[in-house]
């Protein structure tokens, strides 16, 4: 859906998506890193389980909700990637304790 620019010289950052290592760049948001990863990053909505991907990328639509380092319902478009970050694609509503 999206590709990176070959002129992008930002340092690599390794994140894990559902346990799989994914290369991101410093300054990427979690949502941008997921969208360019080529992986199926679709979450499932809390109401009907419908698949969604980020829509606005600016913090207003909440379609980027994702579990980051064990915390659910984070807005992936507002969180920058960090080395070793653990991301889980959130299926349905946030689980209690997560």
């Amino acid at each position: 859906m999206f590709k990176r620019s070959e002129h992008d010289k930002r340092p690599l950052v390794q994140i894990f998506v559902d346990g799989v290592a994914v290369a991101a760049r410093q300054g990427d948001t979690v949502s941008a890193a997921l969208l360019v990863s080529g992986r199926d990053a679709r979450r499932a909505t809390a109401v009907s389980g419908a698949p969604r991907l980020p829509y606005c990328m600016m913090g207003v639509c909440f379609d980027c909700l994702v579990t980051i380092d064990g915390v659910g319902n984070r807005q992936g478009c507002l969180v920058p990637v960090t080395e070793g970050m653990q991301i889980e694609i959130q299926k349905g509503k946030r689980e209690i304790g997560k």
Binding site: F2, R4, S5, D8, R25, G27, L35, V36
Partner: peptide, 13 residues
């Protein structure tokens, strides 16, 4: 705007 955000902040197209 979402595409433009990714373009500006991560050079994604």
């Amino acid at each position: 705007g979402a595409a433009q955000t990714m373009l500006k902040s991560s050079a994604l197209v």
